[in-house]
Design a binder for these strands. Structure first.
Lengths: 324, 324
DNA sequence: CTGAAAGCGCTAACAA
DNA sequence: TTGTTAGCGCTTTCAG
């Protein structure tokens, strides 16, 4: 049987409450007592029972990653994998585990209510969220929710600066001589699509370039379709910025089949820096997407319970390779 | 305040223990009582407090994914991401979270002991494990550990049949006319490397083909190096089986640079079916690696506490594309 | 600065 | 078939 706090207290010759205080680093305690308790604890290999602690403090011990989407397939995404992985790694240090679930975009209320009622839930990290989902976050969850993406007055946001990344990318393409730059955006219902679109519009207006925008869906197939559309609609396009590497790789495939030289005829840039972006032919120019760091920060904010700033933005960095 | 079991019992006009029994679906209870309790529970929106339950049952509420390796970087692997993701999804249903940590291959003892002592740990899923790690699993963890990879008398194994996959792949290559088939294995210290190697040796012996084996490390760069070695050592090689898609893609890159036609001159096959295997040029022939299903089964075994069979093997399926 | 006492919400003997 | 009882291990007032 693992030692309990009582064992430690007895070994140190103090009461259980004193031992508790010392080990929590909380209230007053004489140096002597402090030392004795710590010594006893380490000697016995004492580890607090998280269940007992959770019971009395009312805190949960599980962090839920809730992914907004139309259907449960939104969970099948390497991006989600990375977030969960990072969360599971950060949580390990504090003894909190991570669980993953889908949050129906059209009716998030019940699921959120369930999370709020579940005493086992320490906090919630929402992904791909929308305004309506954020509006449906119950008061019971206040202060223990964070979002990777957009935020709200009650939900702090941790997000990549994809608007800035877009601006940087367009300027890079312009600087390398491109003058007819098309962009493939994400799905229009996703809030994370807005800033890149705005940034693109602003940039091309300022540079006096034509607006060439095609909506995409972040997938390889979507990238193929978008590239075909662009080629058909604006045959003289000399650069394409796709807001995901998967779409950029799809675009690359279409251009290869059609015998279009990249980057000679058309430059192609992606976004995310997925593992194989550097192994495509030509190697894909893209921008980083420090998912793990963002997720770690969001999880830490939830776990520490510190009042996080309304929005924390993470810079993206250009990765210049061969395709643009 | 969320309702407690006492509230439910009072609302149903029964004692707390009766309510507990009914809700647990455990002991005896008259149909009337049963209905009344259930009705009260749903009316009140009762959700049991997992901490209280864990405290009294002594069960943990956290499943630890422990990845064996030389250094903490072993966690930076999409494969680990997938396992953790699958575990987090399965655990969500039972209210258990997942946390992730590295298990030093050379000194797994202390970490394992800590896991065994931590009352918050429900069970442990070990990855990439070795015999010595399995031998170091403390008794305290008995019955709540599972392995994806090799197993031991106390640790049930859930694994892909990579030996069978190898045999199938070699026979496929043979059937398509290849007679000088090289293989790039995984790192030799990893137990999961053994069966494919044995299967390869057996297959080529039976087919009266030469043995051409190069050790790899599962990485893209390792695949490049291995391909170069093969070309140098056995220039007339007409097929390469790499035991990871990443290595196969590296091999493909080398062949492209050297102007070797794939699959015309050399057939290349991988293993894993990573997301972009189908988008390489030529599209990669490979074999599936149903990680999520395996992980889900292992987690379920730990969670249900059922005595799992010593080893469960999952079949791999050939995915014929262009490269072989 | 320290100890006594109460109780978090639940399960599981045991008694009725 | 049901209720009573006794904790699980910890934190936290409240007295000393």
């Amino acid at each position: 049987m693992p030692p309990t706090l009582d064992d430690v207290a007895r070994a140190a010759g103090v009461s259980r409450s004193t031992a508790s205080r010392v080990l929590a680093g909380y209230g007053p305690a004489s140096p002597t007592t402090r030392d004795r308790v710590h010594a006893a604890a380490t000697r016995l290999g004492y580890a607090p029972n998280p269940a007992a602690r959770a019971l009395v403090t009312g805190a949960g011990f599980r962090l839920v990653v809730a992914v907004t989407g139309m259907d449960p397939h939104v969970l099948d995404d390497p991006y989600v994998d990375r977030v969960v992985r990072a969360a599971a790694e950060v949580g390990a240090a504090q003894g909190v585990g991570v669980s993953l679930q889908w949050l129906p975009a059209d009716a998030p209320g019940p699921a959120l209510a369930r999370l709020a009622a579940d005493r086992g839930v320490h906090g919630v990290l929402v992904l791909n969220t929308t305004e309506s989902v954020l509006a449906a976050v119950p008061d019971g969850l206040a202060g223990r929710v964070a979002s990777i993406g957009i935020g709200s007055p009650t939900v702090p946001a941790f997000d990549i600066d994809n608007g800035g990344a877009t601006t940087t990318m367009i300027h890079h393409l312009y600087a390398s001589g491109r003058r007819r730059i098309a962009m493939v955006s994400g799905p229009q219902w996703m809030p994370c699509t807005r800033r890149p679109v705005d940034a693109y519009r602003t940039a091309v207006r300022e540079l006096a370039l034509p607006v060439r925008m095609v909506p995409g869906d972040f997938t390889y197939a979507g990238g193929e379709a978008a590239m075909s559309t662009v080629l058909e609609q604006w045959p003289d396009t000399d650069a394409l910025f796709a807001t995901s590497d998967a779409m950029a790789l799809g675009a690359l495939a279409v251009l290869r089949v059609r015998g279009v030289d990249v980057p000679g005829d058309i430059a192609v840039a992606g976004f995310d820096d997925i593992p194989f972006a550097s192994y495509s032919v030509p190697a894909l120019t893209t921008a980083t997407h420090p998912v793990e760091r963002i997720a770690a920060a969001a999880v830490t904010a939830i776990l520490t319970g510190t009042r996080a700033p309304a929005a924390t933005s993470y810079p993206s960095h250009l990765l210049l390779r061969e395709s643009a």
